[in-house]
Design a protein around this nucleic acid. Structure first.
Lengths: 231, 231
DNA sequence: GTAAATTGGTGTACTTTTGACACCAAGTGA
DNA sequence: TCACTTGGTGTCAAAAGTACACCAATTTAC
């Protein structure tokens, strides 16, 4: 019995544009092959873990390679190891062409991450892959079990938002309370009362007002805030 | 580059005896070898995942094999994949003798589980292994990175107890409010007020009083309760 | 320059939850 | 019958959560 696995990491990167949650996807073609649009491989950025590298380390490396995103928040949330998680013909074909051992069972470790979209517009990177933001509400059919992975990442994010200060990773350096509230509403998928929300923010450590206002908006400009990690 | 991993599952099984939290450990010797006591391999029950089996499935199978515990609550909480997680000489030696590919890097998926100790006294099982309860407060040095795994499992349990009804898995079918409170106190590692605790229990779905009282105790016998999963 | 549209910003009253606190009751064993 | 142990109960104050309505500042269209 020769139970060898390939191990991969998949990163569900959430971004926020002030309006809705987005997920970073990569569209991968095959080098030198002209593919029909529906044969593209839309997936969350992920790849195999190297033999000598830690999991967190791999997650950062892979994300950096595929999207040039560096030094961002990344949290492991779950392993996905159903034996049939790669079952579609299209997926298998793709693997055959890029993986040294396409027949091997792959177990993947899911990470989620948070990025302030304003701070980063994804730069296509290296090999025939293009990174692009896609609204969470409008996800296409993804490769492998990546739709499940995204869903699970979102659930974890929801749980974490309540407890941690994770959420500020999703905002630009300067943000308005309106944005902060909308982000909470979108992640938690429920409406919050404006005044109560602001009451809570006041009690929150690290949210500090700047001497600056929004500009170029078509309504009363909002006070800008920033987040400084407590301690 | 031939990046092949072995994949294992490790189960941190928590038990409660009415007094303190315990963890289920297995003491594994080598078949036919007489080992000095300090060379025994004390570990959390875990083993390799089969090539064709899902992760949850593997966790249940392995736990069942090593401890004859079946059909219990099991929750995946984290993957452990540091490249050097198996570094001690003693551990390596042991692996060399039981694993087909002892040199292979092993990534393990941590599960935690909960058992009402009263319902189950571990039965030694199959190959030269003995399962035994060990107080959490008095854990020995375990094999591999199992001390870390237990610690991480406990943290996850703490978080989950607040939200879910997980905790009843740790109690016998009939329990007293005193036991329920002690269990909370032990898991959360803080004292709770008796009256406030009972107030909260009243608001909790599923905890129903029985027409029965404790017997054979050296004090006022307590009302017995049971838990019925809501809906 | 006036009106419409849009989002920003504020306080109060009610309800619910949490937290602190002390004493009698029902058993056991000496 | 006394000492010991755990079981069981209510009240009050503080904190947190929730519901709710109006004016302010800016832009654009007329």
């Amino acid at each position: 019995m020769n139970a060898a696995f390939d191990l991969s990491v998949d990163n569900v990167v959430f971004g926020f544009d002030g309006e809705q949650l987005q997920v970073l996807l990569i569209r991968q073609g095959l080098p030198g092959v002209d593919m029909a649009p529906d044969r593209f491989h839309m997936a969350v950025p992920g790849d195999l873990v190297f033999p000598e590298e830690g999991l967190d380390q791999a997650a950062h490396r892979i994300l950096s390679n595929l999207t040039s995103l560096d030094g961002i928040y990344l949290k492991q949330f779950r392993a996905f190891g159903a034996p049939d998680r790669v079952f579609e013909e299209k997926d298998r074909e793709w693997l055959t062409r890029i993986r040294p051992h396409p027949e091997r069972r792959v177990v993947t470790i899911g990470y989620y991450s948070l990025v302030a979209m304003a701070d980063y517009t994804p730069r296509p990177s290296s090999f025939a892959s293009r990174a692009e933001w896609c609204p969470l509400s409008d996800l296409p059919r993804l490769a492998f079990d990546h739709n499940d992975i995204v869903k699970a990442g979102l659930l974890q994010l929801r749980e974490d938002v309540a407890r941690e200060s994770v959420i500020f990773e999703l905002l630009p350096e300067k943000f308005t309370l309106g944005q902060l509230q909308r982000l909470h509403e979108i992640i938690l998928d429920k409406d919050l009362d404006k005044r109560n929300f602001r009451k809570n923010v006041k009690r929150m450590e690290g949210v500090v007002p700047l001497d600056e206002k929004q500009e170029g908006v078509l309504h009363k400009p909002a006070q800008l805030y920033t987040y400084v990690r407590p301690q």
